[in-house]
Every structure is written in C-alpha cells, then in structure tokens.
Computed example of a mutant assay.
Amino acid sequence: MIYFILIMCFFGSIVLTPLVKKLAFKVGATDKPNKRKVHQKIMPRMGGLAIYISFLIGALLVNPDKAYHYPILLGSLIIIITGVLDDIYNLNAKIKFIAQTAAAVLVVVWGGVQVEFINLPFGGQLQFGFLDVPITILWIVGITNAINLIDGLDGLAAGVSSIALFTITGMAMIMGNGYVIALSSIVLASTLGFLFFNFYPAKIFMGDTGALFLGYIIAVMSLLGFKNVTLISFVIPVIILGVPISDTFFAIIRRLINKQPLSAPDKSHLHHCLINIGFTHRQTVIIIYAMATFFGLVAVIFSQAKVWGGILLIAIMLLIIELFVEKIGLVGKNYKPILKFINDLRYTTEKDKT
C-alpha cells in the first residue's frame, strides 16, 4: 500500500506542478529579478502548492492511528495558506512569524509533540520542565525559517530538503518508527516530483509556499523521530539539517558583526558566497547537495558511535565547517581566525628554520 502511495505522490506532483505554474501567473505569484536575486527573468513561484497537495493526498490515505496526525496536517494547512499569501502579496515578516508560531503551537499543544527530556550519556535525565513547550515551538519555527533562507537557487531548497528527508526516513527505519517512515517518504516523493521542474534551469520556484512547508514538516518529523531520547541522539536532527542550520547561524553572526537587523536580507548566504568565488549556478547547487549528503552520512555514523567517538566526530565536523566558512567568506572577508592562526604558525615555523 505504501509503495503505491509513494508512486502516486511522485507522479501527482509531476502532474500538478504545471497546473500550479499556470495558477501562479494568473494570481500574480511571481518573482521579479532584483540585485539580490540570481535569476534574470520573471519566474512563477508558489510551486510548493504542488508538493503540498501531493503530500496531503498521501497523508490522508495513510491515516495512521496517531493522536498528532491531524494536528500536524492542520498545522501544515496554516503554513501553506501563509506561504501562498506571501507568494502573492509579500506578507510582513511579523505576520509570517505569528502564523508559523500558531502552526507550531497547534502541533505542540493539541498534538502533544513535545521534547520533555533527554537521557544524558553518562546516566540520568535532563528534564526541560516548563521549557519543553517553548523549546519545541522554537525548534519548529527555527527550522521552518532555516529552509526558507537557503531557497536562493534553482532546486537548492528542494534538493537539500530531499536529502534531509531521505536521511530522516533512513534513521526512522533504523529506529523502527513507522509513522515517520511513512510521512517523511511521502513528502520526499512529492518533493522529488517537483524537482523535475525546479532543478536548474528552473521552470517554477517553490516560493515561500514550498520552503515554509518543507521546513515545517522536516522540523516536526525530526522531533517525532528523536524526541525523548539520548543527548547523543538529540544531536542527530541538528546534524541532518547541517546546511540550513549552519547558513542561518552564520547569517546571524554576520549581521551582528555588521550591526544589521537579524531580519535584514543580504547577498552573503552560502550559495551567494560559492557563486562569488567562481562556481557556476549548477556547480553551486551540486556542491551544497554534496554538503547536505555529507551531513546526512555523519548523522548515520554518529548514531552508531559510542559517546566519546560521537564527541570526537562532532569536534572534527565543527572544525571542517569553520574552515570552510572562513575559506568562502560566509561571515565576512576578514573573518578568518583559524586560517590566520595556521598562517601565523606556518610563518613562525618557517622563520625558525631560517
């Protein structure tokens, strides 16, 4: 049954996307070129509606006996309505934030999806107490916006989300979580169908409709897959979402350093930096796909590692991320503390030799 649903969602997305494209032009959901955009012509957006409709059909057919199933679907409806309106009318950031929070509250309060505690690696539990609800809401809203931030190149957000969903599905198989397997694979199939029209050169953008929905569903699925587990396991969804989380984190650092508002748009995100140092549009997307795959593989290895092995793996991964960030200038051209230290050390060594 599930295989039939996945095939239907995949081809359903392929059939629906051209129809949504026509609808986007009709209602004015278009993206016009400007100095921050990479594309050079008016493009239809709102393509995420095709992903959502395909997903919704599959999710209703699955209909599992879970208390949080319909709250999740209702929350996704709030997100989709917000995304569609934003793609047409360019909503105020505060309105979008309120809608995202409302969707998250619905899932947490009505659906009961909460991270109440984590088991510590050396024994005992860390209880969140009254912070469990705000922490869970913060995670959902944060990841929802993180996916939206990387939606800057053809096929980028859809591809990175697909890799994250594939990893979450694989991890759910290891943990035996049937619900996460079903829903994540349904979203994955729907997104892959849309990618036929969204990969470079794109015929349609997913818009906020797609980026917000994918961010929301990935946030919820990762919570369901890893809530109330060990501290080590709690890190796994963070690793899986390494690309959007890293880009968001360093965007915040960059804006704090430059004394800009956190919501201020700029042209210094990961994909912008890679293009600025000479990579083509297609090469940049493939490089970021490779990075997302790297994070996914690290998450799988990390899940099988012992405590100290996991800590060592995280340390190495963070060092690689920092070196990469400094090399491409993600925070700023002058932000190179480790590279500067290495160069100074090399200079001192060479000086001592002479």
Rank of each mutant, 00 (worst) to 15 (best):
F4G: 07
L6I: 09
I7E: 00
F11E: 03
V15G: 01
L19V: 10
V20W: 07
V20F: 04
K21E: 11
D31C: 06
K35D: 15
K35L: 09
R36I: 04
K41L: 01
M46V: 01
L49R: 05
Y52N: 04
F55A: 10
L56F: 14
A67G: 15
D87N: 11
N90E: 14
N92K: 12
K94R: 14
F97D: 02
A102C: 11
A104Y: 04
V107I: 15
V109E: 12
E116S: 15
E116N: 14
F117W: 14
F117K: 14
N119C: 03
G124C: 04
D132K: 15
V141I: 12
G142E: 07
G142T: 14
G142V: 03
T144F: 05
I150G: 05
G152A: 03
A158W: 06
S161E: 00
S162M: 06
A164K: 01
T167K: 06
T169P: 01
T169Q: 05
M173S: 04
M173K: 01
G178K: 11
V180T: 06
L183V: 08
S185L: 00
S185Y: 04
I186D: 03
V187W: 13
A189T: 06
S190W: 01
F194C: 09
L195S: 08
K203H: 13
G210T: 11
L212C: 08
A219C: 02
A219W: 02
M221F: 07
S222C: 01
F226Y: 11
K227N: 14
I232D: 05
F234L: 14
V235C: 13
V243K: 02
P244M: 04
I245K: 06
L256N: 13
I257R: 15
L262Q: 06
D266F: 01
S268L: 10
S268R: 15
H269S: 03
H269F: 02
H272D: 07
I275M: 14
G278D: 03
G278F: 05
F279T: 11
F279Y: 15
F279N: 12
H281F: 02
T293W: 01
A299E: 04
V300F: 13
K306C: 00
V307I: 14
I316N: 12
E322S: 12
V325A: 12
N334P: 03
Y335H: 15
K340Y: 13
D344G: 07
T349D: 07
K351G: 00
